[in-house]
Simulated assay, not measured.
Amino acid sequence: MQLVVARIGRAHGVKGEVTVEVRTDEPELRLGPGAVLATDPAATGPLTIESGRVHSGRLLLRFEGVGDRNAAEALRNTLLIAEVDPEEQPEDPDEYYDHQLMDLDVVLADGTEIGRITEISHLPSQDLFIVERPDGSEVMIPFVQEIVTEIDLEEQRAVIDPPRGLLDDGEAEVASSRDAAEDES
């Protein structure tokens, strides 16, 4: 299985380094020296990582055969793709690879269908599930334990307990009635 692990940004300096936008939770595993990555567009790769370092909070990589700023700049916006064994699991049982979460059905605890995960957005503060609803609209669900209460890979579903107003007005009424019932108990 192929997994997009980074996107190349602008060139850094004059010796062929590039900034990268990391799209993996395990950059030390996927983006280490010696890693060979496919690319999109394919014409630019594969690329082998020669070295990497963090500078001012950004990951910088240098690839074999890319020795100057012009060659580095030519790689801008290229996606880096790693080959991942589909059976591979993260070490922490509460962590998941994006490919494990893609296409999961999103439901409320009572089984009410919300939609299907079509994308995962990795933001600095938290990850977001982009969920396509049955009507074709999208909703963003923060991937935090308070909201995503269960991931069941065998059943291919993510159970959520959304706060009032997260989904839409109709769901807000469901949430407010649930909150009222909790207040009474």
Results as ranks from 00 to 15, higher is better:
residue 71 A to F: 07
residue 73 E to D: 12
residue 74 A to M: 11
residue 74 A to E: 09
residue 74 A to D: 10
residue 75 L to W: 06
residue 75 L to E: 06
residue 75 L to N: 04
residue 76 R to F: 14
residue 77 N to R: 14
residue 78 T to W: 02
residue 79 L to E: 13
residue 79 L to K: 05
residue 79 L to I: 05
residue 79 L to D: 13
residue 80 L to M: 08
residue 80 L to W: 02
residue 82 A to N: 08
residue 82 A to Q: 08
residue 83 E to N: 11
residue 84 V to Y: 01
residue 84 V to F: 06
residue 84 V to D: 11
residue 84 V to N: 01
residue 85 D to E: 15
residue 85 D to R: 03
residue 87 E to S: 09
residue 87 E to P: 00
residue 87 E to K: 01
residue 88 E to L: 11
residue 89 Q to Y: 02
residue 89 Q to C: 02
residue 92 D to V: 11
residue 93 P to T: 08
residue 93 P to L: 08
residue 93 P to D: 12
residue 94 D to T: 06
residue 94 D to W: 01
residue 94 D to P: 00
residue 94 D to A: 04
residue 95 E to S: 13
residue 95 E to P: 00
residue 96 Y to V: 05
residue 97 Y to I: 02
residue 97 Y to N: 03
residue 98 D to Y: 04
residue 98 D to H: 07
residue 99 H to E: 15
residue 99 H to N: 09
residue 99 H to L: 12
residue 100 Q to Y: 01
residue 103 D to W: 11
residue 104 L to I: 10
residue 105 D to A: 15
residue 105 D to Y: 11
residue 105 D to P: 00
residue 106 V to A: 09
residue 106 V to K: 01
residue 106 V to E: 08
residue 106 V to S: 05
residue 106 V to W: 00
residue 107 V to S: 07
residue 108 L to G: 05
residue 109 A to Y: 04
residue 110 D to Y: 06
residue 110 D to S: 11
residue 110 D to W: 05
residue 110 D to I: 02
residue 111 G to T: 09
residue 111 G to N: 12
residue 112 T to M: 13
residue 112 T to A: 14
residue 112 T to F: 09
residue 113 E to F: 10
residue 114 I to P: 00
residue 114 I to K: 00
residue 115 G to Y: 00
residue 115 G to L: 02
residue 115 G to W: 00
residue 116 R to W: 01
residue 116 R to N: 04
residue 117 I to M: 05
residue 117 I to Y: 00
residue 117 I to R: 01
residue 118 T to R: 13
residue 119 E to N: 15
residue 120 I to T: 10
residue 121 S to F: 07
residue 121 S to T: 14
residue 121 S to A: 14
residue 122 H to F: 12
residue 122 H to S: 15
residue 122 H to E: 12
residue 123 L to Y: 10
residue 123 L to H: 15
residue 124 P to D: 11
residue 124 P to C: 04
residue 125 S to R: 15
residue 125 S to F: 05
residue 126 Q to F: 07
residue 126 Q to C: 09
residue 126 Q to V: 11
residue 127 D to R: 12
residue 127 D to V: 06
residue 128 L to D: 01
residue 128 L to K: 04
residue 129 F to M: 14
residue 129 F to H: 06
residue 129 F to P: 01
residue 130 I to N: 12
residue 131 V to C: 08
residue 132 E to M: 14
residue 132 E to Y: 02
residue 133 R to F: 01
residue 133 R to P: 03
residue 134 P to Q: 08
residue 135 D to C: 05
residue 136 G to L: 04
residue 136 G to M: 06
residue 136 G to Y: 03
residue 137 S to C: 07
residue 138 E to W: 06
residue 139 V to G: 12
residue 139 V to C: 12
residue 140 M to A: 15
residue 140 M to F: 11
residue 140 M to D: 15
residue 141 I to P: 00
residue 142 P to H: 05
residue 142 P to C: 08
residue 142 P to G: 10
residue 142 P to I: 06
residue 143 F to I: 13
residue 143 F to D: 04
residue 145 Q to I: 07
residue 145 Q to T: 13
residue 147 I to C: 05
